[in-house]
C-alpha cells in the first residue's frame, strides 16, 4: 500500500470518527442531562433517541436561512466556517492508538506525527476564536458582540495557562510530539504509580483541564453563550445550519481536547501496570490500543457533560481573575518547580 493511500484513509477515517463521536456527544449530552436531572431526555427519534442529532441536523439543514439585514454579510457567513474548520483539523496530531502492522507495514494510529504537535494544536485551537468574534461582530447584535468580546477575552486569557501547562509537559518529556509523549508513558513511575503524565504533572493537569474547559466555552466558562445573560451570545442571530456548525464545532473541540488530555496526562493507550502490547498480536494490539484510548476519551467527554449539569456559571470578572491571578501564576510556579526538579534529578 502506498503511503499516500494510507494517509488518505487515516485522514478520512479519523475525520469520520471524530464527527461520529461529536454526533453521539450531542446525544450523550442531552441524555446525560436527562440522567442527571431525573428525566428521560430525548427518546423518540430512533432507539433510545439515538437518532436525535440526525433529526436536529436534518432540521437545521432544511430550515430557512436568514441573513439579518443589518448584519455584515461577509463576516456573518465566514464566522461559522472559521469556527468549525479549526475544530475539524485540530485532531490531526492527536493519536488515537498505538500502531497497527498491516501487510508488513507499520502504520501509526495518528494522522500525522508532527514533531511540533503541541504548537499545531495551540495554533489551530486559537484560530477558533476568530470564528466566534467575527460571527459575533458580523451579526450586529449587541448580545452577539458582547458574547464575541467575552469569548475573545476568555480564549486569549486562557491560552496562556494552557500553553504554560503544556510547556511543563515538554520539560518533562523533552519533546513536542504527542506520539513520543504517549510512548514515554509506559511502565511505572516511582515504582508503584503508572507512568502517566498526571502523576508527573498533577498541578499541570489541573491547570490544563481548567484552561481547556475555558477554551471550549463549556460550563462553568460558558460566558460567550451564557443563555440567561446574553440570550445565546455570539450565535444569537444564527439559525439553520450556520448555528449547527457552531454547536457542532463545539463538540468536535471537546473530542480534540479530551484526546489531548488523554495523550498527555492519562497514558494514551497504556493500561496501568500491564503491557498488553507484549501479549497481543500486532493487529489486535492496534485495535485494543485504539479501544483503550477511546474509552479514556469517552470518560473525559462524559466529564464535560457531568460538569455542565452540576456547576453554575462564572461571572466575567471572575473568569478573568481566575485566569490572570490564579492560573497563570500557578502555571509559572509549575514550570519553575518542574524545571527545578529536572535540574536536580538529571
Amino acid at each position: 500500500m502506498d503511503d499516500w493511500l494510507i494517509a488518505i484513509i487515516k485522514v478520512v477515517g479519523i475525520w469520520v470518527w471524530v464527527l461520529l463521536i461529536a454526533v453521539v456527544m450531542t446525544w450523550v449530552e442531552r441524555r446525560g442531562a436527562g440522567l442527571i436531572q431525573d428525566r428521560p431526555g430525548p427518546n423518540r427519534a430512533g432507539p433510545w433517541g439515538l437518532f436525535q442529532p440526525l433529526a436536529d441536523g436534518i432540521k437545521l439543514f432544511t430550515k430557512e436561512e436568514i441573513i439579518p439585514t443589518k448584519a455584515q454579510k461577509f463576516l456573518y457567513i465566514i464566522g461559522p466556517a472559521l469556527f468549525s474548520l479549526p475544530a475539524f483539523s485540530a485532531y490531526a496530531v492527536v493519536p488515537f492508538g498505538d500502531k497497527i502492522i498491516l501487510g508488513g507495514k507499520e502504520i501509526i494510529l495518528q494522522v500525522s506525527d508532527v514533531n511540533i504537535g503541541f504548537l499545531y494544536i495551540l495554533a489551530i485551537g486559537s484560530m477558533a476564536v476568530y470564528g466566534v468574534i467575527l460571527g459575533g461582530w458580523g451579526s450586529t447584535n449587541k448580545y452577539s458582540i458582547l458574547g464575541g468580546l467575552r469569548s475573545t477575552a476568555q480564549m486569549v486569557s486562557y491560552e496562556v495557562p494552557l500553553g504554560l501547562a503544556l510547556l511543563a509537559v515538554v520539560f518533562v518529556y523533552g519533546t513536542f510530539s504527542l506520539r513520543d509523549i504517549s510512548l514515554a508513558q509506559q511502565g511505572t513511575f516511582l515504582g508503584f504509580l503508572p507512568n502517566w503524565g498526571i502523576f508527573k504533572q498533577p498541578l499541570g493537569f489541573i491547570l490544563f483541564i481548567v484552561a481547556a474547559y475555558a477554551e471550549a466555552n463549556r460550563v462553568p466558562f460558558d460566558l460567550p453563550e451564557a443563555e440567561s445573560e446574553i440570550v445565546s451570545g455570539y450565535h444569537t442571530e444564527y439559525g439553520s445550519m450556520r448555528l449547527g456548525l457552531y454547536l457542532f464545532g463545539e463538540y468536535v473541540n471537546l473530542v480534540t481536547i479530551s484526546g489531548t488530555i488523554v495523550a498527555l496526562y492519562f497514558g494514551s493507550w497504556h493500561l496501568p501496570y500491564i503491557d498488553l502490547g507484549a501479549y497481543l498480536g500486532p493487529i489486535s494490539w492496534g485495535i485494543v490500543s485504539f479501544c483503550i484510548f477511546f474509552l479514556k476519551v469517552a470518560f473525559f467527554l462524559w466529564l464535560f457533560v457531568w460538569v455542565r449539569w452540576t456547576l453554575p456559571r462564572f461571572r466575567y470578572d471572575q473568569v478573568m481573575g481566575l485566569g490572570w491571578r490564579g492560573l497563570i501564576p500557578l502555571a509559572l510556579f509549575n514550570i519553575f518547580i518542574t524545571a527545578l526538579f529536572i535540574q536536580l534529578t538529571v
Binding site: R44, F51, Q52, A55, I58, K59, F61, T62
Partner: peptide, 8 residues
C-alpha cells in the same frame, strides 16, 4: 425532512 423536523 419531515422526520427531522418533527423530531426536533
Amino acid at each position: 425532512i419531515n422526520w427531522g423536523r418533527k423530531r426536533s
